[in-house]
Design a protein around this nucleic acid. Structure first.
Lengths: 346, 346
DNA sequence: TTGTATGCGTTATCAC
DNA sequence: GTGATAACGCATACAA
């Protein structure tokens, strides 16, 4: 006698039950229910379908996957869903996965390498068909875990050999900074995102490049590490404006922080954009509704997620994935304005 | 000869490979690798572990689940992850699921019953251990699909018999409205969320109750349907303030819309809170950073998600789930203030 | 303490 | 066009 377990949950109808009820063999039932291309008589088909409905048959994907070696599931690794940026990405992933009949297994890494690796293993144990990884810290060690056996698409920059879908954050950083330069600003501070984030690093690099191209020197660069959340931003802004000469413009690491910066300045009695211009990144949903509406470099988060899944589906279909770089767009709104002479001069 | 499929992906090491490499039987290998309570000699254990490491063995959860009838996966149905409210809920779900070694399968329903039912079926095919459903429209038809075979925990109100984790949105709506009444406001308008949302309906009910308790009549109620996103809010506010007498205070369906309302008023030249007081719900991350900082009724979204998973885990462990009602909290900030006499009188 | 054998639910193969 | 059968990878009842 074989395994005889206490069934933790009632056993639902199997394909054998359906077959018996329809008066056919399990093979025939399977051919009907799994949309196989194998021919089945019209009469048999009807009987199987009727029996399946009658019994409330729900196929067991676990058993099917065990045999076909495909789970129709994709794993998604993201630092934090409650961040609007990743929420948008996730939305795009879901939007593309649904119609392709794939389900999404979600994992929050919190940018913690240990957590990342743990989840990675969990996803491999589940034999997901592929992975979409957003928010970096997916390096050589992690590639080793997947053993190259698993198609992986990165959102943002990752290990060079992995296909990626991203925006050019250096260009985005430069775009934001150039906008401020064109408005006449010369003392422009830059709040950087977390040190581990390549996105943050690239935006800072773009900031530096734009300054240099405008003829400013390294001495004119003011870069402070802030992070991608408002935590600690108030103190940072205090520090930034305590020193003289104070900046007249500021590049925030993202919109969330930009909103906090605007408020911090407001509390100091400085007006945006009257006294200080502020530019953010991402164009999160509230960006255009806050007062002043945020000037920002829009990142197509939903499109990123969507493109990543499309690339992954291509990979699964055997098509090689070309790197995708989606365009960013400067959206000039109310938080930036021309430098008023007499205040900006050093 | 049996199934001989073209392997779409290279076959990874199985427990038989490990057993052979370790010089033991598959049973012994299984006992070591699945943390079974069955005794295994120390020597055997070491050999199996070594072999597993050597071969890069990763257990196949599909096969294990087929046998144990447990997948360690929970399905999550949510209207829209890119909404900060649900992003918070999702975060809480993930936070509680991870340490319990459960993975989360995410589905966006968009409040579309057809999509909901499709996903529901997909989750059942995957044999998830249980379901967390947020954002309603999970009614009798859906309960029928699960056939009661699947533990379900609702976040928010749902079919009466299903265990739920929620906040008292009637109380929340009353709390927001009472705050405005205490500030002296009498002409208070209410923007309702989507008609299908019980959360929205409850908040409106609370609004009505508070007005009534303050001795106002049904004639004093002004309720307009807005939705949970800023779409169309500008036109709505225009309409609202075109009529006389204009309201002096406004209850928004959530913070996202509240921010948009503040902006719409700003564009009309009305000041918040000087001319109009505005209160929102949820206390989303930006709420305290916008200017004016939003007075809002905080909903513990992350805690809701966490509690839902805990209830579900309890259910899976055989413990009955008592309904959980988490407290809301009024956070008075800058978007509400005392009614200035002479403007508020009719 | 170990090994052998069985079956979880499904689909591919082969013979009819 | 149909049916019997093996196998996917694993955990357990049972015998040793």
């Amino acid at each position: 006698m074989g395994a005889r377990l206490r069934p933790p949950r009632p056993r639902s109808a199997t394909i054998r039950d359906v077959a018996r009820s329809a008066g056919v063999s399990p093979a025939t039932a399977s051919r009907v229910l799994s949309a196989s291309r194998h021919p089945v008589s019209e009469r048999g088909r009807r009987r199987v379908l009727a029996a399946a409905r009658r019994l409330g048959y729900i196929p067991n994907l676990l058993a099917r996957s065990l045999l076909t070696r495909e789970t129709a599931a994709i794993g998604v690794l993201v630092p934090d869903v409650s961040n609007p940026y990743y929420a948008g990405v996730l939305r795009g992933i879901e939007d593309a996965a649904g119609p392709a009949r794939r389900t999404v297994i979600l994992c929050n890494t919190d940018r913690d390498p240990a957590k990342l690796r743990w989840y990675l293993r969990a996803l491999m144990e589940r034999r997901v068909d592929g992975l979409v990884v957003a928010g970096g810290s997916f390096g050589r060690a992690e590639t080793a875990i997947t053993g190259g056996a698993l198609p992986v698409v990165m959102i943002g920059r990752g290990p060079a050999r992995l296909p990626s879908v991203r925006v050019d954050n250096v260009a985005a950083g430069a775009m934001a900074t150039r906008h401020l330069l064109e408005l006449g600003h010369r003392r422009i501070a830059c709040l950087a995102g977390p040190a581990v984030s390549t996105t943050a690093a690239d935006r800072v690099a773009g900031y530096r490049r734009a300054l240099r191209e405008a003829g400013l020197s390294a001495a004119d660069e003011v870069v402070l590490e802030a992070g991608f959340t408002p935590t600690g931003v108030f103190a940072l802004v205090d520090r930034l404006f305590a020193r003289a000469p104070a900046p007249t413009a500021l590049v925030a690491p993202n919109d969330l922080v930009a909103v906090a910066v605007v408020r911090a300045l407001h509390e100091q009695g400085r007006r945006v954009p009257g006294d200080v211009s502020v530019v953010g990144f991402d164009d999160i949903p509230v960006a255009s509704y806050v007062v002043p509406a945020l000037t920002t470099v829009a990142v197509p988060t939903v499109a990123l997620g969507r493109a990543a899944v499309e690339a992954l589906l291509g990979l699964l279909a055997g098509r090689p994935a070309a790197p995708v770089v989606l365009p960013c767009e400067l959206r000039v709104r109310e938080s930036t304005s021309t430098l008023v002479e007499g205040r900006g001069s050093s």
